[in-house]
Every structure is written in structure tokens, then in C-alpha cells.
Design a protein around this nucleic acid. Structure first.
Lengths: 257, 257
DNA sequence: CCAAAAGTGTTTAAGCTACACCCATGA
DNA sequence: TCATGGGTGTAGCTTAAACACTTTTGG
């Protein structure tokens, strides 16, 4: 989160102009909020927390966590703040990026609300799985939300936001090493492969995956120890941590959907 | 631009709740605007129109075209409207996509202004090259704006927005057939190649470029005529129009910057 | 020993790069 | 006829996909 440098008026008359400026002449303005799609992997499924709405509108439906952007913060800062409140995680363990801004005038029947959505990837830790005390938050599997069988209705345009977020997450894994942000270090290459398989919803060739990851310089770095994966049987595997590159060259492409 | 379906209250009490709702309890809100980066190719250079600011703040600096989002429109609709006002082009000839939303509380010294930036690609037609009558708009080459030699200062955070837009444009050409939206159909493959060379700032191997484009199904379709390119000497070339695919498989990758 | 995952080798196909070379057109 | 860009051919390299096979661990 980078700050702009402070604006310096060029002249006394400009200073006076700014001091006397009356914002109300530009009308009522809009309410500005953030919504956050916090992706994590729980029980082998791509999941995210949703909050049950207690009041109108969409009472009883599930909504993305989020809230109003305060007057002294950017939407990035608001997203990070809400994320901390929601998950209790420190910022440096989280990956968070802006997704898109939703501004349909009818998206909230109460009033005009413009919302910027953020996508975050976190390892599954002490996330609220069942109902919390203050807010009624649950972890939901994406496939259950999108399934016609399940009866999970999302408030506002949050289903569309989720669809956009899912596509973003899938494509992010292709050309960045961010899959590792779903894991706690150290991890095995199988753990990493399972992240891809979970997010993309397709199985990958283990041997070729291994070669591709290791041949991409800086993707992962071995810690020099072996350890058992998060799974039971089989040989113990080399352990890795995430490397220091931002982009993968070449990318790790999924098959077409 | 897709619309949400109208929200239907679930009960008379919810209907009453919405009718009685008082938006002012959520504070003053923010001003909401759009800024548009209209990329086009003029005299062999990637260019965009900028508007000279006549008032405070940043008086005399150059700013991206844009304006307030009206209360009955989404930011997409506002961007398209402003684009029409700015260029006089019909919507279907323009490619326009959301870039990012900028919400630093200090980005406008007058008041809190949240702005969603859009990127558009258009063929160079009757764009305002010199000063217009109403607004003082000029076409600027991106390289001149970014050059330290030239003395073109951009208002607000518009330089950062331009940098983000430039990176978006470069990467869009890699995996979509949108390069053709910079051209008027029909065009030759050399014209198309020159778009890539201009936006990416690197020269491409003409023979290999030709093979790659033609081997990517649906990228371009021949109209069955030959015609001279926009350039003088040499053999007449086959003419093409843009195809009907949204994504290129495989992508047309640029070299690292 | 057996099952299951880790890890290596190898073959084949596909794509990209570079260079050579011919074709068509206008000056 | 010559310069210039259009267009084709092809060798050599790199990468991806598929399959076979060996190694290491727990039960």
C-alpha cells in the first residue's frame, strides 16, 4: 500500500481556493465499500468465508465479508483492515489484490453503493468454520455455492463477484508463484500440486509438475530437509519454501475449461 | 454492459424498510468519477488524449479525460458515455475495459474522490490532435509523457494510472486478439505487426509473426482481396479482418522488458 | 511384502527462433 | 533493375505430454 505525496498548492490563491472549497456542490456522492473474497483450501476444497445477513435487504442470505471504507483510508487499506478483523492474520502472511469495482446503480436497493472487491489467498488456519460469536460467519466450498443442488443464496451481486474472483484466482496461479500462499511453509511439491488441482479443478501429472516447478528459477527453494507431506502413506518428500520471484517464466498453463 | 435484475422485496415489512431508508446515516459518502485512457496509434506512436486543466488544483497540468458518474449509471456506462463525448465514435468500434479503482484519500486535494479507470483501444480517426473548441485536448505520445526530456506534468495520480494502463495494454495484446482494435479493417498482417511493435516497443520477426497469427485459429480472417498496406513500397499484401475469438491459444508472448 | 507417493529417464510431438530464399510491386 | 516488403521452407533448439520405471516410506 503506497501513499501519494502530499499536494502542495502552487500559490496563495490556490491555497485559498482549496481552503474555501465546498464539496457539497458535487451532489450527494456515493457510499463506498469493499468486499473481500478470502480464498483458502479447507478439506481439499477451495473455500471462502461468508457472513449471514441479519437485516434487510437480502435478510438470511450470505454475503461477502466487507464494510465501509473510512474517510482516512484507501480501499486497499480498508480491505486489509477488514481482512485482519475477519481472520486475525497478520498482513504479511496474506496475499491481497484488487479485483474489480462494481457500480451498478441498483446493486443495493437501499442506496447507491459502489464497492471495490479484493481477492485474498490465505493458508487455512484458525478460520471461522462454524458460527462465530459476533457475526455468523461460515466457510463455504466454492463448488457448493455454485452447485444447483445446494441452497446457498448470495446477497447483492456477490455471486457475480465470486465468479470473477474465481477466474482471477485460476489465472493468477498460471503466471505467478502465488499458489504457495495457500500453504504454510515448509511444504512438499505434492502439497503445491494439490493447490493447483483444487483451484483449477483438474488433475495434474505429478512427475511433469515437479519438473516444471523446479525448472522455473526462484519459484520454490528447498530447505534441505525431508518431511512427511500432509498425507499419510508413501515416501517422505523434500520440503520447500516459496521463492522470491513475482512472475513465472514460462507460465504454468492449465487446460482450457 | 449488463444490468442487474431488479430487487424484489420479500415481504411488506422489507418494502417499508426500503421505502423509509435514510441513506444519510452512512455519512457524507465520496465523489465517484471515471478516468479513461484512450490508447490509439498516431504517427507510429502509442498515444492518448489528455485535457488541459483550466482551474485549481493542478492548474495548467494535463489530465485524463473523464468525469463524474451520474446517479443513474454504472461506471462502465459513464466511461462509454465520456468516450463517445470525447471521440465521437460509436460504441461498437471501441474496446473498453475496467482497469483499476484509485481511492487514496489524498488523491484529490479538494475532497474525497474515488475514481475507476478504464482503458480503451481505438483506431486513429478524427481524434482531437490540436486544441478543440470546448476543451483543450491534445494527443500525446506515451513515450513523450514518460520521457524526462519532455515537460509534460500529469495532474493527480494520473501518471500512475497511465503506467498501470500501459502495462495492461501490453499484456492484453499477448493473450487476446485486441491488437486489431487499433486498426480499421481491412488491414494487412504488417499493419497488425506494427501495432504490436508500437505497443510493446520492440521489433518482431515478420515471417514468424505471420506464421503465428495465421496458425492461431480465429485470430484474423482473410477477406480474399489484396491491397496495399498503409505504406508505400513493396509487394501488395493479403487483407484481413479481425476474427471472432476472445483469447489466443497459444498466446503471443513479448520478450521481457 | 504391498500400496502409495517421490523422484528419474526417455520418447514424441509441438512450438519458437533464426536464417535462407523466392515473389511481387513501385520507383 | 533495384530496393522493399510479402511470403515460404527448413534446420535446430526448447518445452510439454505421456509412459515406463526405480526408490523410499508406512502398514
Amino acid at each position: 500500500v503506497q501513499k501519494l505525496s502530499k499536494y502542495i498548492p502552487s500559490s496563495p490563491e490556490e491555497e485559498k481556493f482549496l481552503a474555501d472549497y465546498n464539496p457539497t456542490k458535487y451532489g450527494p456522492g456515493v457510499a463506498y465499500t469493499v468486499d473481500i473474497i478470502v480464498f483458502t483450501i479447507h478439506n481439499g476444497k477451495l473455500s471462502l468465508p461468508l457472513v449471514k445477513r441479519g437485516g434487510f435487504p437480502y435478510k438470511g442470505s450470505w454475503a461477502l465479508p466487507g464494510g465501509f471504507v473510512e474517510s482516512n483510508e484507501s480501499s486497499e487499506e480498508a480491505a486489509v483492515r477488514e481482512l485482519g478483523e475477519e481472520t486475525g492474520l497478520s498482513i504479511d502472511k496474506i496475499y491481497c489484490e484488487q479485483l474489480k469495482t462494481y457500480s451498478d446503480p441498483d446493486r443495493d436497493p437501499r442506496m447507491r453503493v459502489v464497492s471495490t472487491a479484493y481477492v485474498a489467498f490465505i493458508p487455512h488456519l484458525g478460520m471461522p468454520v462454524g458460527g462465530d460469536d459476533a457475526v455468523d460467519a461460515h466457510l463455504f466450498a466454492v463448488e457448493d455455492i455454485l452447485s444447483d443442488d445446494e441452497d446457498i443464496t448470495l446477497a447483492f451481486d456477490h455471486l457475480r463477484i465470486l465468479e470473477d474472483a474465481l477466474e482471477r484466482a485460476k489465472s493468477k496461479l498460471e503466471y505467478t508463484p502465488l499458489a504457495a500462499t495457500f500453504l504454510e511453509a515448509p511444504f512438499t511439491l505434492s502439497d503445491l500440486r494439490r493447490v493447483y488441482e483444487t483451484v483449477w479443478g483438474q488433475s495434474l501429472h505429478a512427475a511433469n509438475f515437479r519438473r516444471k516447478v523446479l525448472s522455473t528459477n526462484g519459484f520454490v527453494v528447498p530447505i534441505g530437509e525431508k518431511g512427511s507431506s500432509k498425507f499419510e502413506s508413501g515416501r517422505t518428500a523434500e520440503l520447500y519454501t516459496i521463492g522470491n520471484v513475482n512472475m513465472l517464466h514460462p507460465a504454468l498453463l492449465r487446460n482450457q475449461d
